[in-house]
């Protein structure tokens, strides 16, 4: 079901370092917090822990963004997707082969729980539309646009900037194909609108989506979010 169990069953055939999942030590909330503070500094970790970030779309971009933010100890993640895990997702999205058919919100929540047991995860298994985005995103500080289709991307970016001028949106455009990594970059379009990607590589025109390149773009987005939470607004 989750990463821990999977890893455990694989290692059982060799020399098991732990006899069972039950006996495995899962660190306490305080231990996790201390470890994050040690890495990020107390002040910065406080900012991450106090933030609520929405991830709209839990595919190649969104699932990778969410994993990065969960690992960084962002206090509240709001996961939004209407779709289910499909076999064609596994090559680039953060799901396991035994999660096919599950709602992406539920599957990703399970996977994030295994990584970061104490962060707050809120899920909405819905399609984001012009008429529900105001209600859906009201409680979030930063919104990640991680959709697949260009029209949905434009809809969300315009909607957020129009309805929530105080919030930040970090969007992505152009990460398909196998063009060089260094073409992917982060741009600041307005003080509240950051855009990651190469700007041109369309999934319909390029030959597919490659995990490493989609992850690069997702990492740009996740880093842009963390920088914003840290109060760093330049790119």
């Amino acid at each position: 079901m989750n990463f821990l169990e999977k890893e455990n069953s694989a290692s059982a055939e060799n020399e098991p370092r732990h006899s069972s999942a039950e006996e495995r030590h899962i660190p306490s909330r305080e231990e996790m917090q201390r470890a994050l503070e040690e890495r990020h500094g107390v002040e910065l970790q406080k900012k991450f822990a106090a933030a609520s970030v929405a991830v709209c779309g839990l595919g190649g971009l969104g699932s990778n963004i969410a994993v990065s933010l969960a690992r960084a100890g962002v206090g509240r993640l709001h996961l939004i997707d209407f779709d289910r895990v499909d076999i064609t997702n596994l090559h680039r999205q953060q799901y396991a082969a035994n999660q096919l058919g599950m709602d992406k919100t539920r599957a990703l929540q399970d996977n994030l729980r295994a990584i970061a047991p104490y962060i707050e995860i809120v899920t909405d298994t819905v399609k984001v539309k012009e008429d529900n985005l105001r209600e859906l995103l009201a409680g979030d500080d930063v919104i990640c646009e991680a959709f697949d289709h260009a029209e949905n991307k434009a809809m969300l970016v315009n909607g957020v900037l129009e309805y929530f001028p105080e919030k930040y949106i970090v969007a992505a455009s152009g990460m398909a194909g196998i063009s060089p990594a260094n073409e992917i970059r982060t741009r600041k379009i307005t003080p509240h609108f950051y855009l990651c990607g190469d700007g041109t590589s369309d999934a319909a025109e390029c030959s597919g989506l490659f995990s490493a390149r989609v992850m690069l773009c997702a990492a740009h987005q996740a880093l842009a979010v963390l920088r914003l939470l840290a109060g760093k607004t330049e790119v």
Partner: peptide
Amino acid sequence: KAQYDTTVFEDGDTVEVVSFVGGG
């Protein structure tokens, strides 16, 4: 979007038109 028909570009404006492409 509702103001695309009525918003007029003026001399000295700096404009960015972001055209989204698919993939994610």
